[in-house]
């Protein structure tokens, strides 16, 4: 399985390449990118340098133009596709059918990957994208159980990539407007969820409160680990229950344990989430996953998850917790 790693900056890209990525994915510095965060991402010159650095070391470079093109800014998305084609990147990762259509017509030689934001969770949906845009690969949303991944893979017209590690989106990607409901900005319309400019921290009555656009997301006691107020990881009241994680706890997806099962489903690539993360985070996660995948490849039958790998990843996880997410039925 190919190890696909995130880079939100040139140092993170070098960290991913140097620590064993098979492919690195990046995005541009605008709202064509679903990780459109201040101070991150690549301008034209940096993207060119990134490509050279990766290519010289035998690593592929994918570029994500994975938001939905907004009607008044269509040229931005079209120009971004032109740039990816000009770079001769190894693949363009896209979600919007308008963007994919443009890329497929203008640059038939450019490999197209369907982004997780495209939200294709079954093989009939994949056929739609394959027939129309000749996509080569699709990234599956983090909503399928392992048997469902196997089923999709067995009938899929294209190679599949699945999420292996990182922040856990609870909702089907590309199908969540909760962030724009509270702030006006969502992954689909602005390339960001729970954007930092709407976040406020306040100390009140000995507790730390986190707010998103004025609404209370969580309250933390002095001894609690206060996480970023991603709105689906907050504590709310529902029914008779008070102040609980209605959607999900702050936790990270970690599928190191599932490497043999994922390989058996036939998926071609595993993806590390985290273009918003630091170079040292990327280096540690990538190097741990490289060791694990190499170990599996050497002796698949003898593969066992090593304690030091798990501890390394645990320490890098949200809330220092990890989960198998939707791959495991009980999580659902």
């Amino acid at each position: 399985m190919e190890l696909v790693c995130p880079a939100g900056s040139p140092p993170a890209l070098r960290a991913a390449v140097d620590n064993g990525a098979d492919a690195v994915y990046i995005g541009f510095k605008d709202d064509t990118n679903a990780r459109h965060f201040a101070g991150l991402n690549f301008d034209d010159a940096k993207a060119q340098q990134a490509l050279a650095y990766a290519r010289d070391r035998g690593v592929k470079l994918f570029v994500a133009i994975n938001t939905y093109a907004q009607s008044q800014g269509w040229e931005r998305w079209r120009n971004a596709v032109d740039k990816v084609a000009g770079l001769q990147a190894d693949a363009l990762i896209a979600a919007d059918i308008g963007v994919m259509d443009y890329a497929a017509r203008q640059y038939p030689q450019l490999n197209l990957h369907l982004s997780v934001q495209g939200s294709a969770t079954n093989y009939e949906a994949l056929r739609f994208y394959y027939n129309r845009f000749n996509i080569k690969r699709a990234v599956l949303p983090r909503v399928l159980s392992l048997p469902q991944v196997r089923q999709v893979a067995s009938q899929s017209p294209v190679d599949l990539e699945v999420f292996a590690f990182g922040s856990l989106c609870i909702m089907a990607e590309g199908r969540c407007y909760m962030s724009s409901y509270m702030t006006g900005e969502s992954p689909n319309n602005s390339g960001a969820c729970s954007p930092a400019k709407f976040v406020k921290w306040e100390q009140k009555d000995g507790r730390l409160e986190s707010r998103l656009n004025g609404s209370l997301i969580d309250r933390f006691e002095a001894d609690e680990n206060a996480g970023y107020p991603t709105l689906c990881k907050g504590r709310f009241d529902a029914g008779d229950s008070h102040a609980f994680h209605v959607f999900e706890e702050p936790t990270s997806l970690n599928t190191l344990d599932l490497i043999p099962e994922l390989a058996a489903t036939g998926v071609k690539a595993v993806k590390i989430e985290g273009r918003q993360r630091s170079p040292s985070y990327v280096a540690q996660v990538v190097s741990t996953w490289r060791q694990a995948l190499d170990c599996f490849q050497r002796e698949p039958a003898a593969f066992r998850c090593q304690q030091d790998w798990l501890e390394a990843l645990q320490a890098l996880s949200e809330g220092a917790q990890t989960t198998l997410g939707a791959y495991s039925r009980p999580w659902q």
Binding site: V143, L144, S145, M171, A172, Y177, C232, A326, Q332
Partner: peptide, 8 residues
């Protein structure tokens, strides 16, 4: 607003 594998 959103769909999930999980039943809330």
């Amino acid at each position: 607003l959103a769909l999930s594998a999980r039943c809330f």
